[in-house]
Design a protein around this nucleic acid. Structure first.
Length: 371
RNA sequence: GGACGGGUGGGUGAGUGGCUAAAACCAGCAGACUGUAAAUCUGCCGCUCCUUGCGGGCUACGGAGGUUCGAAUCCUCCCCCGUCCA
């Protein structure tokens, strides 16, 4: 049996402690998944990521299809071998690129026509084509192609995108049934519906009817308020089967993660820790630190005195600021390491709190610190 | 001693009569970043006042004078710097 998901404990809030078993190892949930779009988490080696305790990485279908090409990756033994990452991988389908490359694409019922952001060349991605690429890449968890739209979006637009996403989900399921290997890969469907609760509900119910191995909630944290994000996530998680993993795509800020966990979300991914790190925004147990700020110029203290990551154990704020302001590569490396540690450690604490029934206390402590 | 070239805001460097508190870039200061077109992007960046505004005042393009309604821009002298000739 390649895959298995079990819920080990639940919290009154709705938070779940779980275990997702894959051919490349176990993922303890709730899990945060660092984003490695181009088969690399910028600034970290695979060894770094293993040492950090990263359980699963994200990579991107669209980017890897453009470069180096999925055929090459397959030839190199698949994504795990190619990038030398022994643990689980999830590939996003390219749905988010429909949103973020909005002026370079044209969406139709059949699929999306993209102009490459690299050289302007034209490419076509359909649900089937996305899966063909994802099967070639060989990630443990693969996502159906969806249409992610901006928020807030008018109901008519959200309805159209949700309907198309559902149709694509059906096509994805059918394609995977014919060409995929359920022992090797797990296909997730994605719920859309914008910020409209009734659309979300209907879309979730219909998607569950297609019987996916896991369910993702997409199209959130794309412009709407956090309260609305939570409301939509809750509408959806309340409809999803308890025995399948739930993945809230693209979130979130440190102070928001726990809110999503409490809504019954098992998996999350976000570029925030890695991108922010590259931009000098560091997350600490006492809030954000913009390390380039002049006030750290001669600050001998560690970035976060309560953090036991390799960076905080060894370097001063003054040194980190120096590295950042001088544009040294090491700044990206150290900052990324710390931010990922921060997220992963928070997830470890959250899992522990669910296990021991202390999530509520953890929550009030966290709120007091981060706000 | 002579001939050219040049001295602009923290730096580099545009500007050769008004639209110039003065381009652009860098540095500096601050902010943003949510399924990565992001080692990116945005704002501020002479001093000062206030009713914080496409607001007022002051100072500013080596120095001092001058021409002009108006000068970083034109003229005179002076002081520096560079190159070349003696």
């Amino acid at each position: 049996m390649g895959f298995q998901f079990e819920v080990l404990a639940t919290d009154p809030s709705g938070a779940r402690l779980g275990r997702l078993t894959t051919p490349h190892g176990v993922i303890e949930t709730p899990a945060f998944m660092p984003v490695g779009t181009a088969a690399t988490v910028k600034g970290q080696t695979q060894q770094d990521l293993e040492d950090l305790g990263v359980q699963i990485l994200l990579a991107n279908t669209y980017h890897l299809y453009l470069r180096p090409g999925h055929a090459l990756v397959r030839e190199m033994g698949g994504l795990h071998d190619f990038m030398s990452w022994p643990r689980p991988i999830l590939t996003d389908s390219g749905g988010f690129q429909i949103f973020s490359l909005s002026d370079l694409r044209k969406v139709g019922d059949d699929g999306v026509r993209f102009r490459s952001h690299l050289d302007g060349s034209e490419h076509f991605l359909s649900p089937e084509r996305a899966l063909e690429i994802e099967i070639a890449l060989g990630a443990d968890i693969i996502m159906a192609l969806d249409e992610c739209i901006e928020a807030p979006a008018p109901e008519s637009r959200a309805r159209e995108a949700a309907a198309r996403t559902l149709d694509w989900a059906r096509r994805s399921r059918d394609y995977f049934a014919r060409h995929g290997d359920a022992e090797r890969q797990m296909l997730f469907g994605i719920v859309q519906g914008g910020t409209h609760a009734q659309l979300r509900r209907g879309n979730a119910d219909a998607l569950v009817g297609l019987d996916f191995r896991g369910y993702a909630i997409g199209g959130l944290a794309v412009g709407e308020s956090h309260a609305v994000t939570c409301e939509m996530a809750e509408v959806v998680t309340s409809r999803l089967p308890a025995d399948r993993p739930r993945y809230l795509m693209g979130v979130g800020k440190p102070e928001q993660i726990l809110d999503y966990v409490r809504l019954g979300v098992d998996m999350m991914d976000c570029v925030l820790p890695t991108r922010s790190a590259r931009h000098g925004c560091l997350f600490t147990t006492k809030g954000r630190v913009l390390i380039r700020n002049a006030r750290y110029a001669s600050d001998p203290r560690p970035l976060d005195e309560d953090c036991s990551c390799a960076v905080c154990r060894r370097y001063s704020r003054a040194y980190l600021r120096h590295l950042y302001t001088t544009g040294e590569f090491l700044a990206t490396i150290l900052n990324t390491h710390h931010n990922l540690y921060f997220y992963l450690d928070m997830m470890r604490q959250i899992r522990e709190a669910i296990r021991f029934g202390t999530l509520e206390r953890f929550r009030s402590d966290l709120q007091a610190r981060l706000t």
